[in-house]
Simulated assay, not measured.
Amino acid sequence: MEEQNLMRLQKYIALSGVASRRKAEEMIQEGRVKVNHQVIQTLGEKINIETDLVEVDETIIHVEQRKVYIMINKPVRFVSTASDQFNRPTVLDLVKNDFNERLYPVGRLDYDTEGLLLLTNDGDLTYKITHPKHVIKKVYVANVKGIPTRTKLDEFRKGLEIDDYITSPADIEVIKIIKGGCELKVTIHEGRNRQVRKMCEKIGHPVTKLKRVAIGDIVLDDLSGGNWRHLTNEEISYLKNI
């Protein structure tokens, strides 16, 4: 049973709107509460909020699922999936103690890529953002080896053939010269697997470090690595109206 699905019974009753937490404890002790048709009178009993059936005075109760929208600055060496077959740390490990709701990453970032990733339990919004028909710009800062010529930059902007497909037009600019190469700002409108890395490799300038800094108008700003914050009402409204 996954820890993030567990909740104390009295809290579940309180969140359902039936009674306060203290009153819920009294109800449990009075034998008025059943879990999976069995009377529970022990305080502190934990239930699975996804699978257990809770009744108060013979009436089934439910917790209204709270919609959660957060951004996280994913560090490298974390996978952006709910679980991993190789037991590598996932982005959900960074927030699992903060939410009762089951959250899911919106899209993905590579294991060795850091930066902005959205997490939510709103399936409709996830579908909207990740569906190919909804074109949303994604902005990255990439450290690469060498400095691309104007010709190479133009090739990148027009689209490149990688993995038997032609990428959509993209934006790219050199923003800083660094030791052994340069820092690029790259804006794409697709989300194919390792696309930025493959495009940079195609023009002869492999990526040494990659960070996503924006999804549409949602910007990472100064959120430090491994930390998260709730999206503002304005940011949520923007995503829903894309």
Rank of each mutant, 00 (worst) to 15 (best):
K23N: 11
Y165P: 06
Y238R: 03
I47W: 01
E25H: 11
G216E: 01
P169C: 09
G17V: 10
K34R: 15
T126F: 01
T42C: 10
L184W: 06
N143L: 08
N5D: 14
L210G: 05
K34Y: 12
A214M: 06
I60A: 14
H37R: 15
S237N: 14
K198S: 03
T42L: 14
Q4P: 01
K202R: 07
K152S: 09
Q38G: 07
D57L: 12
H205D: 02
G180L: 04
T130N: 07
L103I: 05
Q41W: 02
L9R: 06
R88Y: 11
D52R: 05
K198I: 04
D164C: 01
T149L: 09
I177T: 13
M71N: 00
N193F: 15
M27T: 07
K209S: 15
R157A: 12
P105Y: 08
I172P: 02
L117T: 05
E155M: 13
T126C: 10
L239Q: 02
Q85C: 05
I242M: 07
R32M: 11
L9A: 07
L119Y: 01
N227D: 15
I129Y: 03
V213E: 07
N97M: 10
G123W: 09
F86Q: 15
R150P: 04
N73I: 00
G181H: 06
I218Y: 00
K179V: 05
R150H: 10
K158H: 09
L92S: 03
R77W: 10
I166E: 13
V91F: 03
V63T: 11
K240D: 10
Q85D: 15
E173Q: 13
H230P: 07
L6S: 07
K11D: 04
H189L: 05
E201L: 14
R21D: 09
I175G: 07
V39A: 13
I203V: 01
Q65F: 00
M199H: 06
N143I: 04
D164K: 14
Q41K: 15
M1D: 08
K138P: 08
D57P: 09
T81H: 12
V35C: 12
P169I: 09
I13W: 05
I147R: 02
A170I: 10
V135L: 12
L231F: 03
T151F: 10
R77L: 14
E25Y: 11
V18F: 06
E201W: 02
G17Y: 10
G146N: 08
R197N: 11
E101H: 10
I129P: 00
I147M: 04
T81L: 12
D217R: 13
I203C: 07
K34G: 03
L109I: 04
E55G: 06
I162C: 01
E55P: 03
K137C: 00
H189G: 03
N87C: 11
K202M: 02
I49D: 00
G225Y: 00
I177C: 02
V68P: 04
D110S: 12
T187W: 04
G31C: 14
R22C: 08
V139M: 03
L92C: 08
L231P: 06
N73Y: 06
L125K: 05
L94G: 02
D124G: 11
K198R: 15
Q4Y: 13
F78R: 03
N227I: 03
D110F: 04
Q29S: 14
E55A: 05
D124V: 09
Y12M: 05
F86P: 02
I129W: 01
V68L: 08
A24I: 09
T113H: 02
L239F: 05
S16F: 06
Q65C: 04
V33K: 00
E235D: 09
N121I: 07
